[in-house]
Design a protein around this nucleic acid. Structure first.
Length: 870
RNA sequence: GCGGACGUGGUGGAACUGGUAGACACACAGGACUUAAAAUCCUGUGGGGGAAACCCCGUCCGGGUUCGAGUCCCGGCGUCCGCACCA
């Protein structure tokens, strides 16, 4: 049979046009079907799509197409995370304007995505850098401001004195600016923050309700929020030269039970008290300065020795009459957590112990581990952090750790210091407020105005949008908005006097914190349309990289709550279902000179990898995530150009579970393509050998036809279940199996025979095409047409398996002797236990294995197994 | 250090709530078709023994529960991920 090859390149374009002309992926709210919102994390317009996008968007598309076939009204939109640093850096390095490069990139990537045949509603497309989008975002900002969710806080930032700009942490390399190489200074700078900490408890608690999120992500978020319960303790400063306005030190502790073992207090170098001391005390000033100059990288902190400076101040021990504790400034105490001050109990905290040993401070054990003798228990190099019984602790002696915590809290709550309780129960969170200020041009301007007489005032809503000026230059250091000749100069909306605009723009995480809501009504004159969001939200299935497990998802959860509070949505959790897919990896290659090589520069010769041009040997390195620096990248466009989009899609879904990293290989891509060609041939054969489209279903089927039908319907059921669970790799395997069965059947079939087999062949081919359609939609359309249909498969309902076929009359079960499989038995599926047992014991292999021993017991699990214990 | 996940052939991976381990694919080998190649199709493929029937071993290692463990429990080892002087 002259089977022509399927010309993916030509036909894919054709079907994409057909879908577009029919507008079948457009979503409308007035639809009686149940809604389903599938969303993949939208891309940053970097210029070209990469394999990670292909994987992400293919998965989302399978779900979208499947749910559509299942009778849902599906919303599947796409847009662009348009603002951000790379576009601005490109403008600085190569000239041009971020807006131009961004929109150029979007145009290219839109075409590339369209080439993948994704079932997207492109009429809803927008970019976050569109004036309309950031206009609405400025309105949201003002509403959040009114609702008390915006604050101004002083933050330490990385300041590059040469580029005169603030650097992100990842732009600081070894303490120097990534571009200028200048030593980065820590600067305190007022910044705009969103008060995410107001929702710390809610964001933590609500994680429990996110059943369709990966446990891993919920855990990461919980750890990030970092709730811990403890006690706030106020120590009165008594001895030493006490600076003005500092007569007590507040400390947060989770171990109030160890208070009797305290031997010092330590405050952070950035603690206000430390600063006050430094003004008088040169040693303290020098010490603090040294702390600032020590690297803040994780590695530097890791190896840093615990050092402190005795301030000479003394505080009163709140529980021991007359006892005093020295106050140190210590390098291991951070200002960012708790109160920036601790009390040190060396016996039961490793850090405190190391510090105490270095400073020669007493180490008094107060918790006795179970089974230890209080008379000889001492602390060596390791602090004891476990549970036990209180000792050396006055009224706490004999209590458990938990009881002692309560006893101290109760006691100190009643003790007063300057009219306030000495101890207060307190819940501390690691989560900090979300700083959204960026000293950058290419972002959403923060709509505020600084007036010398009125202070900071919001831009009136009627004056919005605050539009980014187009005429800016990037050829000089500094902030383009700040040095623009006219842009920032305005009149104060309150007093009419001269004032200046806020030149900070918003963190791009703000842009991505509500885009999913904007997709519901992308053209609305309001940020959101309550009717539209009420219909579509929450997102039923959100898919993206695990690298966004914490920040993006936490910010979006917060922002949704903020939008609820300000009346812009009616829900608090934006994403009902979340799936985090793995990365795309590839082997790495180096040539004889140790230079990285692109996969396309490497070829196989005599079973070895060699350089395609020179023939020189190539070193094959580790399989790693695709990255430009290691050159182990494959451009999706080259794959689509060579094999078509369906091949790339099929590969991405095959073999590897979607949450794991997938290794791209040329051989695998060829394999995927071969299979699609095979499906095309099978369908061609089935169109000839199978029954006519109009053929009636025979009233009965012979064994061969019955077996094919059973296999086909089993595959339908299995693929349905697999897609529902997002286990695309097993869905693919099921489709392979059905193709194998159909293929074997076609070998024996005669052309144009109107028989039960012919009917089963057509049915199996059609089912094969229909269940493969969400994954390889173009090929499926082509095959559907080849089978004589005039409809679009994209508009066909999902097939329902005939489950009655699964109930075979006989079943085959394994027969074990002493737990080892010895034979198998085919028997009526409803056979009685006794009959199964009798039949099993007659099997030759079973008799031999028993070897004349006495049968102690026979376990019979009908339809599953027989185990003879002898 | 804390928290979590994982460990199955040469490779990616299947195996639902404990019930025939290795589905399906990749790779490899042999064969058919062909003047030849490509493409396609067929066969084989965890290790060992055997002509075969079949037997022994086998899911990181060591124990345990059970008629039966890749799956459950305890103890190790290894790999990966997240967080980290968090008081």
């Amino acid at each position: 049979m002259a089977a022509e090859r399927y010309d993916a390149l030509k036909r894919e374009k054709h079907w994409q046009t057909a879908w577009e002309e029919r507008g079948i992926f457009r979503a409308f709210e007035d639809d009686p079907r149940p809604k389903y919102y599938v969303l993949e994390m939208f891309p940053y317009p970097s210029g070209r799509i990469h394999m990670g996008h292909v994987r992400n968007y293919t998965m989302g598309d399978v779900i979208a197409r499947y749910m559509r076939a299942k009778g849902h009204n599906v919303l599947h939109p796409m847009g662009w995370d348009g603002f951000g640093l790379p576009a601005e850096n490109a403008a600085i390095e190569r000239g041009g304007h971020p807006a131009k490069s961004t929109y150029d990139n979007i145009a290219v990537m839109r075409d590339q995505l369209k080439g993948l045949g994704l079932s997207l509603d492109w009429t809803r497309e927008f970019a976050t850098c569109d004036l309309d989008y950031y206009h609405q975002q400025q309105r949201l900002f003002l509403d959040l401001l009114k609702a008390g969710l915006v604050d101004r806080k002083t933050r330490k930032v990385n300041w590059d004195p040469i580029d005169r700009t603030v650097l992100a942490n990842e732009q600081v390399i070894d303490g120097r600016g990534w571009r200028s190489g200048a030593l980065v200074e820590q600067r305190e700078q007022p910044e705009w923050v969103f008060k995410i900490t107001d929702y710390a408890e809610d964001l933590l608690q609500a994680l429990g309700g996110l059943e369709h999120w990966p446990e891993k992500v919920r855990l990461m978020q919980a750890n990030w929020i970092g709730r811990s319960e403890g006690l706030l303790v106020r120590f009165a400063i008594e001895g030493g030269a006490v600076p003005k306005d500092h007569d007590l030190i507040e400390v947060f502790t989770t171990r109030p039970d160890t208070l009797f073992g305290a031997s010092f207090l330590a405050i952070a170098p950035d603690h206000p008290l430390a600063k006050a001391i430094a003004e008088e005390n040169l040693d303290a000033a020098a010490f603090i300065d040294a702390c600032h100059h020590h690297g803040t990288s994780a590695a530097a902190l890791e190896t840093q020795e615990k050092k402190g400076l005795d301030t000479g101040l003394r505080v009163l021990h709140p529980l021991i009459e007359g006892a005093e504790l020295p106050v140190f400034i210590a390098n291991f105490v951070v200002m960012e957590y708790g109160t920036g001050a601790i009390f040190g109990c060396p016996a039961h905290d490793q850090r405190d112990l190391e510090f105490a040993r270095a400073e020669g401070l007493p180490v008094i054990p107060v918790v006795l581990p179970p089974g230890e003798d209080p008379k000889c228990f001492t602390i060596g190099e390791e602090a004891y952090t476990g549970d036990g019984t209180m000792i050396n602790s006055g009224f706490l002696d004999g209590l458990t750790v938990a009881a002692a915590k309560d006893a101290v809290a109760d006691h100190l709550a009643k003790t007063k210091l300057k009219g306030r309780p000495v101890g207060e129960r307190h819940t501390q969170y690691r989560l900090r407020d979300w700083g959204i200020s960026r000293q950058r041009y290419w972002g959403c301007p923060i709509p505020m105005i600084h007036c010398s007489s009125c202070g900071i005032v919001p831009v009136p809503e009627s004056d919005l949008p605050v539009k980014l000026p187009g005429d800016v230059s990037f050829d000089r250091p500094g902030h383009p908005l700040d040095r623009h000749p006219t842009w920032k100069h305005v009149t104060c909306p309150r007093c009419g006097g001269a004032a200046t605009r806020e030149t900070d723009t918003m963190d791009t995480f703000v842009d991505s914190s509500w885009y999913f809501a904007r997709f519901c009504s992308p053209k609305s004159g309001e940020p959101t349309d309550l009717k539209a969001t009420g219909y579509w939200l929450p997102v039923d299935q959100y898919i993206g990289g695990v690298e966004h497990a914490i920040l993006h998802l936490l910010y979006a959860r917060f922002f949704t709550r903020a939008m609820l509070k300000t009346g812009h949505v009616a829900i608090d959790e934006p994403f009902r279902g979340l799936f985090t897919q793995g990365m795309v990896t590839h082997e790495t290659y180096k040539d004889v000179h140790g230079k990285w090589l692109l996969p396309e520069e490497v070829t196989r010769k005599d079973g070895r990898q060699v350089h395609a041009k020179t023939g020189e040997p190539v070193t094959v390195g580790a399989v790693e995530s695709m990255s430009k620096s290691k050159k182990n990248v494959v451009d999706p466009e080259s794959i689509i150009g060579a094999y078509g989009a369906d091949t790339a899609r099929w590969f991405m879904l095959s073999d590897t579970p979607p949450e794991r990293d997938i290794e791209w290989s040329a051989a695998g891509a060829e394999g995927a393509h071969r299979f699609l060609q095979r499906v095309w041939r099978l369908v061609g054969e089935a169109a000839v050998k199978g029954a006519a489209l109009s053929a009636a279903k025979p009233s009965s089927f012979g064994p061969e036809a019955e077996a094919l039908r059973r296999a086909a319907h089993r595959s339908v059921a299995a693929v349905t279940g697999a897609i529902e669970k997002l286990r695309f790799n097993t869905a693919v395997a099921q489709i392979y199996e059905l193709a194998n069965v159909l293929s074997a059947c076609l070998q024996n079939a005669e052309p144009h025979v109107q028989s039960d087999t012919a009917y089963a062949v057509r049915e199996a081919a059609e089912l094969l095409v229909r269940i493969a359609a969400p994954m390889v939609p173009h090929l499926a359309e082509e095959a559907w047409a080849r089978l004589g249909h005039e409809t679009l498969i994209a508009e066909e309902p999902w097939p329902a398996p005939e489950t009655a076929l699964f109930l075979e009359e006989t079943v085959t079960i394994a027969v074990q002797v002493n737990g080892k499989r010895r034979d198998e038995l085919t028997i009526a599926r409803d056979a009685a236990k006794e009959d199964i047992e009798a039949a099993a014991l007659k099997l030759d292999n079973v008799v031999r294995a028993i070897g004349g021993r006495k049968i102690k017991k026979v376990v019979v699990v009908p339809q599953r197994i027989v185990n003879v214990v002898a």
